[in-house]
Amino acid sequence: MSSDRTPLSLTVFLLLAFGLSWLFAAPLWLGDGLDSPLFLPLSLAMMATPAIAALVVVFFVERPEHRARALGLWPLGPAGRLIGYLALAMVVPVVLILAALPVGALLGVYPADFVHLSGFQEQLDSQWEALGDEIPQPPLGLLFVLQLMGVATGAFLNLLPALGEELGWRGWLLPRLYRFGAVPALLVSGVIWGLWHAPLILLGYNYPDAPRWLGLLAMVGMCVVVGMVFGWLRLRSASVWPAALAHGSFNAAAGFSFVFVQAGETVDTVHSTILGWSGWIVPLVLVAVLFATGQFRPAQAEPAQAAERPAA
Rank of each mutant, 00 (worst) to 15 (best):
A152P: 03
L286E: 01
A218L: 13
Q300L: 14
P93C: 07
A79V: 13
L200R: 10
W172L: 09
G19L: 00
A105C: 08
P175G: 02
W172G: 12
F156V: 15
L98M: 09
R81I: 07
L202C: 06
L245A: 09
A246C: 02
L214Q: 15
F18T: 13
L124R: 14
L28H: 00
A299C: 03
P102D: 01
A210Q: 03
W280D: 03
E265Y: 03
V91A: 10
Q147R: 10
F258S: 15
L159T: 08
D113P: 00
H197I: 08
W29I: 05
T269G: 08
A26E: 14
M222R: 12
N251M: 01
S2K: 14
Q123Y: 11
G80V: 06
S278C: 05
A54Y: 00
F39K: 08
L131R: 14
A25M: 07
V145R: 00
F120T: 11
A311W: 14
V56D: 00
Q137P: 03
I97R: 00
R236C: 07
L174R: 04
L28C: 03
L86A: 08
V95S: 02
P283D: 08
A288G: 15
E129N: 14
P93E: 06
W128F: 15
G33W: 00
R63D: 07
F156Y: 09
M47L: 15
T266L: 11
L88I: 11
F39S: 08
S278A: 15
A105Q: 11
R5G: 09
L8G: 11
L106F: 15
L44P: 02
G194A: 04
A185I: 10
V109G: 04
L163F: 09
F144A: 14
L8H: 13
L214M: 14
S278Y: 03
W280K: 06
G132T: 09
L124Y: 07
G231M: 00
I52D: 01
V109R: 04
S2E: 11
E134G: 12
W128I: 08
R176S: 05
L73T: 12
M149H: 05
A99E: 06
G19S: 02
Q262K: 15
A301D: 14
L214Y: 11
F18E: 06
L106P: 07
W74R: 13
I192L: 15
G31P: 01
E65W: 05
W172V: 12
V145H: 00
W196G: 03
L217T: 14
M46F: 07
H247S: 08
M90H: 06
W241F: 13
L284G: 09
H66V: 10
A51W: 00
D35S: 15
G72W: 04
P161N: 07
V282E: 06
E122G: 13
P184S: 09
N158E: 11
A304P: 05
V285E: 02
